[in-house]
């Protein structure tokens, strides 16, 4: 799958967002990760939000997975791995 990665701006991050993404990328390495762009084509988009406000926005037509903690990252890894061909 092609997975878009979109970060919120990070003004109130409650965990290390970049480290969480690195972990997802390395543990679910069967997928292709690309920076999210409006209008881009992605099978899924992971939106990395620093806190519960989850203020980052992506286009409505995408299948979106919100990551707001290390635990969410772990769940996302499991989900992505289960879809690895």
């Amino acid at each position: 799958m092609t997975v878009g990665v979109k970060y919120c701006g990070g003004c109130n991050a409650e965990y290390e967002r970049v480290r969480a993404v690195e972990r997802i990328k390395s543990e679910a390495s069967g997928h292709t990760f690309k920076p999210y762009k409006d209008g881009g084509v992605f099978d899924k988009v992971i939106v990395i939000v620093g806190c519960g406000k989850a203020c980052a926005k992506v286009g409505e037509r995408h299948e979106v997975v919100y990551i707001g903690s290390e635990a969410d990252a772990t769940s996302a890894i499991a989900m992505l791995k289960s879809t690895e061909g």
Partner: peptide
């Protein structure tokens, strides 16, 4: 930095 561009 990708992790701040939403604001920057």
């Amino acid at each position: 930095k990708a992790e701040h561009q939403d604001l920057m």
